[in-house]
């Protein structure tokens, strides 16, 4: 390829002005030619500056308010996820760390049982807390892989949070009902106003098509806020911890399939949903 031809391609590519086959040609070129890659990077920097040439126009002050209102309704952060598959992974990590503890006892119980056994709940929580202490002590001494330890710590934190929600005597509970698309599934939504956090526990969710996950949605009026994506166990079970750091009072909760990474707007079909008290 002549140098002039090559420069033409690189300059046009930087401007996104090439058709598909030509763009493919440039990608192949820069993949094997560091000099071409450098030249393209330089042109990219120039192309990125061209927007500054646009004549500036003042924005409507009302737009700022609209944008902020929209943003404030749309951000559940930090959203914590508690997919049961990760619980299994963490359990394996704990085994590696030679901790013979089975944890998450409280989570294995159905919420109905927990509600009925409220008298024993405190004891369960206390026992779990003790176990977590043991896990932490042995983990610190284990000198294991840092990434695994961080992962375990995250799960311990999540676990503690869920226990705290379950232990809240004023926890609000809603039953999630399955739709036709989610036939056989069931779930509970528990919200602790005091903690500003909640948990959704779903069971027997239908198997997902490859390349999809489940996504939790909180709905207030016409606003839908994603509560995060999750992957259930092969049995279709999952627990999702929800923490909101802004004012949002959902009156219903729904679970839908979604693409990996989550959907921009709530997709269909809904498999589980319920009204929040």
């Amino acid at each position: 390829m002549r140098p002039q031809e090559r420069e033409e391609l690189l300059a046009a590519y930087a401007l996104d002005a090439l058709s598909g086959p030509e763009a493919d040609e440039v990608e192949a070129l820069v993949a094997g030619d560091p000099e071409a890659a450098e030249q393209l990077a330089a042109y990219r920097e120039i192309a990125d500056l061209i927007g500054l040439e646009a004549p500036l126009r003042r924005t409507d002050p009302a737009l700022r308010e609209r944008m902020l209102q929209s943003a404030q309704r749309m951000r559940p952060t930090p959203t914590r996820r508690f997919p049961a598959l990760r619980v299994a992974a963490v359990a394996a990590a704990l085994a590696v760390l030679a901790i013979g503890v089975s944890w998450g006892v409280g989570l294995q119980r159905s919420i109905d049982t927990l509600q009925q056994e409220s008298a024993s709940l405190a004891a369960i929580v206390a026992a779990d807390t003790q176990r977590i202490d043991v896990i932490e002590t042995e983990r610190v001494g284990s000198g294991g892989d840092e990434a695994v330890r961080t992962d375990v710590q995250g799960e311990i934190d999540t676990h503690r949070r869920i226990i705290a929600i379950l232990a809240d005597p004023n926890v609000q509970e809603a039953s999630l009902e399955s739709t036709e698309a989610g036939r056989g599934a069931s779930g509970r939504y528990l919200w602790s106003a005091e903690l500003g956090a909640g948990v959704v526990i779903a069971q027997q969710l239908p198997p997902l098509p490859i390349g999809t996950v489940y996504e939790l949605w909180l709905i207030e009026g016409f606003d839908e806020v994603s509560g995060g994506t999750f992957v259930p166990t092969p049995d279709g079970d999952a627990q999702v911890l929800i923490e909101l750091d802004f004012e949002f009072n959902p009156f219903s909760v729904a679970i839908t399939p979604a693409p990996v990474g989550g959907a921009e707007v709530m997709p269909q079909p809904i498999v589980l949903s319920g009204w929040v008290p």
Binding site: E7, E8, A11, A12, A42, Y43, E45, I46, L49
Partner: peptide, 19 residues
């Protein structure tokens, strides 16, 4: 396109952000 981009690159050499 080539000539324009080259001229812009030369003119903005001092203004360009880090690579």
């Amino acid at each position: 396109v080539r000539l324009a981009m080259r001229k812009l690159r030369d003119a903005l050499e001092q203004t360009r952000p880090p690579p």
